[in-house]
């Protein structure tokens, strides 16, 4: 399988997108907040946006090279592009949408994504999940050499999303195509891709396996995008060999990581314990505050306590009988506290 290599600079309104991405026969996801330049990256790879400089190649086929003046037209690059809002042709039936890029594999692709029965329907008659299947079938029927997916799950409601995520993962694994996905959601990206890159303000801050990113985020921005709580404070070495971080409200955290100066102290929601009473345990960090909000998500609940979001199971939520406005203690270990440059 060919690998996709992109090394490019694209001028955006407020900043430049400068990215080096290599996607070697596996699914790579790029995560970042909206406006980070994610879609621009995909559009540049597809040939819909012309980079100011750089090089894009698939295997030994060069698609773009600013120094050699090469810029292959979008229609000759053979990319399968699944747009965020699917971009289905409203005047064509599902079947003719899928046949737009190539008639040879239409029936096979409709079958493969499970929408053969929708072939005569117009896109306007379909649900969001069905539209996405059409968009994927259409991209695959054109026999692409690389697959680009722009926020493949963002336009779906929460229930459809979980099941589509699983299906998409299986589908991507079975295709044997390099695939580049962009998403604003780290969990989506981590489910779909083996390698995840973090993009913010046009720069790739870190790229690696999802578990490696969570364990060792390169900086506070990355940690925040992965869903960690980031508290900003002043760090110095403590007498006990730990790092002491003084937050702006005067409260103090301790962390096992070294660090000094202005830093971000990052802790993951599932590393935080919530208790009614200030029990004596091995966790060194405690923040006591009233519960601001409780949001239930499936079998888990996100509990907002002061500056922290903790994730606990619904089971423990029920057992403790936690309610909003109730004063609780959120604790986490110094070893679960990452000290990160801002």
């Amino acid at each position: 399988m060919d690998s996709l290599v992109a090394d490019l600079t694209v001028a955006l309104r407020d900043f430049d997108l400068v990215a080096q991405i290599e996607c070697a026969g596996e699914t790579t996801a790029i995560v970042g907040p909206s406006g980070a330049g994610k879609s621009t990256l995909l559009r540049a790879v597809a040939g819909l946006v012309r980079p100011a400089a750089g090089r894009i190649a698939l295997g030994d086929q060069i698609w773009f090279d600013s120094t050699r003046g090469i810029d292959i037209a979008a229609e000759r690059r053979r990319v399968g592009y699944v747009f965020q809002h699917y971009a289905l042709f409203p005047h064509l039936s599902v079947e003719r949408n899928v046949a737009f890029g190539g008639r040879r594999r239409v029936a096979e692709m409709l079958e493969r994504v499970g929408i053969a029965h929708l072939a005569p329907a117009r896109p306007g008659e379909l649900s969001g999940g069905e539209r996405q299947r059409v968009a994927i079938a259409r991209a695959l029927a054109s026999e692409p050499r690389v697959l680009l997916l722009d926020e493949p799950l963002a336009a779906l409601d929460t229930r459809t999303r979980a099941s589509v995520r699983g299906e998409l993962r299986t589908l991507l694994a079975s295709l044997g195509l390099p695939a580049l996905i962009v998403s604003h959601d780290f969990e989506d990206a981590a489910t779909l891709a083996r390698r995840v890159g973090v993009l913010a303000r046009g720069r790739v801050l870190q790229i690696g396996e999802p578990s490696a990113l969570v364990a060792r985020p390169a900086n506070a921005t990355v940690a925040e995008l992965l869903g960690a709580n980031v508290l900003v404070g002043e760090a110095r070495a403590g007498s006990d060999g730990l790092t002491v971080i003084t937050l702006s409200d005067g409260s103090v955290l301790r962390a096992a990581d070294p660090g000094s100066g202005r830093v971000g102290a990052a802790v993951l929601p599932w590393d935080i314990t919530i208790a009614r009473s200030a029990a004596a345990d091995s966790a060194l960090n405690r923040i006591s505050a009233a519960i601001e909000s409780i949001v239930e998500l499936g079998n888990r609940a996100r509990v907002r306590v002061g500056p922290l979001t903790a994730e606990i199971t619904i089971a423990s939520l029920r057992e403790l009988g936690l309610r909003e406005d109730e004063r609780v203690h959120a604790t986490f270990k110094a070893t679960a506290t990452r000290v990160l440059p801002l």
């Binding site: 559009r43 597809a46 040939g47 819909l48 037209a73 979008a74 229609e75 000759r76 690059r77 053979r78 990319v79 399968g80 592009y81 747009f83 809002h85 971009a87 289905l88 042709f89 409203p90 005047h91 737009f100 890029g101 190539g102 259409r138 991209a139 054109s142």
Partner: peptide, 27 residues
């Protein structure tokens, strides 16, 4: 006519003239 539909046609292999005839004109 939504620009994204024009882009979609291009990525599906339609030339600018083909995109005009098959997407922009009917819409």
């Amino acid at each position: 006519v939504d620009r994204e539909l024009i882009d979609a046609a291009r990525t599906l292999g339609a030339s600018p003239a083909g995109t005009f005839a098959r997407v922009a004109l009917p819409l």
